[in-house]
């Protein structure tokens, strides 16, 4: 469904069966990528640590299903899901995690810095809050160029308390820039509960301080996320400015792969994994309504497994990152510039 269709129906979105299946497959792909990443970490094939997105798949899938290739995103340390949903290649992502020359960043960046400038991924980011001003600058550039593309800025609950968030959201709202601030509230900043880090009950309420809409949705309901994001991006494209979209969710694992997350109550973890699994719940609903049968679900899972295996094999078979080339990568050695970015000859 296009955004125009949705709006012309007054906001009561009819979701086609195929769209649900697409969303389901996208979430399964993200989870399968993360499961293979975790295995690779445990086998010692990756460097550093990984911040896994398992449990939060509905947000990336729901927000990006309707985006254009020309739209931009900024991501976070927990970024694998965003990248896959925006269209990144799993093989090159795995290659980056394994430190290979064929990786997105040629082994220079790793999990926290994967970017694909050709499809609008302006980088995951290792500093909490840092992507927010960058997303605002990208949105500024889109308006400067007179384009109606948008920027989706992903960040976690902890970012909402940084100065970078405040400065950037204030600028975006004052200048009415085409950006959607997507807060993935997974309830913990590493080990600290959001209740002990912020007095607001809903983080979306912070929008009041910037005179922009604040919307809070169940971040584990992919259809609810999608609906809210379609509304927010439509506003942004029309020049009505940013929206703060809070998606409440939960990470199944610890903050990173070396963290067991034991600071969280067992019952809380069980509740989110068993009763609020975004993938399991969508499958259950679609089976209940007869939109899909178990055999079709099994096919999706088998195809995704093959896709992930193939992508991982590509990474394993790639050459390690090149030390000599690295030393030439600190500065960009530009060819002589004779044209500006509009293709006009420069004097």
């Amino acid at each position: 469904m296009s955004v125009t269709d949705y709006l012309s129906w007054g906001g009561s979105m009819q979701v086609r069966k195929q769209e649900k299946i697409d969303l389901y497959r996208l979430m399964v792909r993200i989870r399968a990528f993360e499961e293979q990443s975790f295995i690779s970490f445990n086998q010692g094939l990756t460097y550093g640590v990984l911040h896994l997105y398992i449990g939060e798949e509905a947000i990336a899938a729901g927000c990006m299903y309707d985006l254009r290739k020309e739209d931009y995103i900024t991501s976070t340390h927990r970024g694998h899901g965003h990248l896959i949903a925006k269209g990144a290649d799993m093989g090159r992502m795995f290659a980056e995690l394994l430190g290979k020359e064929t990786g997105y960043c040629r082994g220079r960046g790793g999990s926290m810095h994967i970017a694909d400038m050709t499809i609008g991924i302006l980088g995951a980011n290792g500093i909490v809050g840092a992507g927010v001003p960058i997303s605002v600058g990208a949105a500024f550039a889109l308006r400067y160029k007179g384009l109606d593309h948008v920027v989706l800025c992903f960040f976690g609950d902890a970012t909402i308390n940084t100065g970078a968030f405040h400065e950037a959201v204030n600028l975006a709202s004052t200048w009415k820039l085409p950006v959607v601030f997507v807060c993935e509230n997974n309830l913990y900043g590493i080990s600290v509960s959001i209740k002990n880090a912020c007095a607001l009950r809903s983080l979306a309420d912070r929008s009041a301080g910037y005179a922009i809409p604040g919307v809070c949705v169940d971040g584990n309901d992919v259809l609810a996320v999608r609906k809210a994001c379609i509304e927010a991006t439509a506003r942004a494209r029309k020049g009505e400015g940013p929206t703060l979209l809070e998606c409440q969710t939960y990470r199944w694992g610890g903050h990173f792969t070396a963290d067991d997350g034991k600071y969280r109550p067992d019952e809380e973890v069980r509740h989110w994994k068993e009763e609020r699994d975004p993938i399991g719940n969508l499958a259950r609903d679609m089976l209940g309504s007869g939109e899909i049968d178990q055999q079709e679900i099994d096919v999706i899972h088998r195809e995704v497994k093959e896709e992930v295996e193939k992508a991982f094999r590509y990474a394993q078979e790639s050459n390690p990152a090149d030390v000599d080339g690295m030393l030439r990568g600190v500065y960009y050695e530009s060819p002589t510039r004779t044209r500006n970015s509009k293709g006009e000859d420069l004097p």
Partner: peptide, 8 residues
Amino acid sequence: HFMTGGQA
């Protein structure tokens, strides 16, 4: 520029 392997 460096972190993105020269893409940015």
